[in-house]
Simulated scan of single mutants.
Amino acid sequence: MKAYIIRRLLYMVLTLFGASVLIFGLYALTPGDFVDNNPKLTDERKAELKQMYGLDKPVVERYFVWLGNAVRGDFGYSLQYQQPVTSLLSQYIWNSFLIASASTLFTWLIAIVIGVISATRQYSFFDSAVTIGAFAAMSFPSFFAGLLIIKFFAVDLGWFPPGGMITTGSNATGLAYVWEVIDHMFLPVLVLTMLGVGSLTRYFRTNMLEIIRQDFIRTARAKGLKEKTVVYKHALRNALLPAITLLGFELPALFGGAIITEKIFNWPGVGQLYMQAFSLRDYPLLMGFTMFLAILTVVSNLLADLLYGVADPRVRLK
């Protein structure tokens, strides 16, 4: 196990190095930047700023300077916000992590329950309704689903606030503050859960159908085990194994997918930051956030591989 982890960590370093080359090259070779696209600056001031932030140096030299700083946790300086990228991301990343983790939890719980019931009642009315609902949820664009939910739950029914993280001018503290945040995050979590649960439900249903037709399930039933024991202890545990691989991509994908959702609900997360930085070509902030997603992806995949070995004793990580 120790040798496997060390080898995977070395692969992670090489993967992140390759990702850093692609990320920096993509943004560095894109025409224009925050300085060039600011019409309020004179040519002399633009040249001064480029020299100050090292934007006048060759691309290769700029990359190694950026990489050396990134290894120390310094991803540059946001020209738009006039703050270090690391401190700027740390202010908003936890807000995004809050709705991403909540939607991941609800998505998996709902998908597992519905997928198991749908597989054990194949071709029933419930199975048909789930199939239709899953494809309907997958077909909705996130911006349309967000606007539709705001119209129904916030405008028509008035059950939840339409956006933001807390009520404007609120001075709530303690449990009142926690409840206010939960109240505001309900709709964005609902959108992300609705968009993700459809495909994951179909995935669990397909896995369960394959497992319950195998010989060891028939043997378990022939031994007289209860149907719940057969389904939830033997079939479900084996059906979860392939899904663990998906877990490595779920959280990074939610951070990327939440960009539009955060914009619609005015949620103060990193998605809002990314959209504004993209429109103004604040490349240090864009590179820092994209690199964060790359790091999150490789770490999540490592955890998924380790969890796979824990969940299935037959797997030996060598």
Score class of each variant (00 low, 15 high):
A239H: 05
I211A: 05
R202N: 06
F143S: 12
A239E: 07
L147Y: 14
L195R: 05
F186G: 00
M208K: 00
N207P: 04
K226H: 14
D127A: 08
S128I: 05
F216D: 00
P162E: 01
Q214S: 11
T173G: 04
E210S: 14
T206K: 03
T168A: 15
F249A: 13
L187D: 03
T131F: 13
I211K: 01
L225D: 08
L209T: 01
S118V: 02
L192H: 05
G158M: 02
I212S: 06
T229D: 15
L195E: 04
D215A: 05
L187G: 04
S124D: 10
I132A: 08
K151L: 12
A172G: 04
T219F: 14
L241D: 00
G198V: 08
A253Y: 03
F126R: 00
G158W: 05
P161H: 12
P141N: 02
T201M: 15
S139G: 03
V231R: 01
M185P: 08
L236H: 02
T131C: 08
K226S: 12
L240V: 09
Y177Q: 14
K223A: 09
Y123D: 13
F216H: 00
L147T: 11
V189F: 08
F135H: 10
T173Y: 04
F160D: 14
L195A: 05
F152W: 15
A172M: 06
I166R: 15
A176R: 11
V231E: 01
I211E: 08
G256C: 07
A220Y: 03
G198E: 05
T173D: 05
N207A: 13
D156C: 04
R213M: 07
A253R: 13
G224F: 03
A253W: 03
G256M: 10
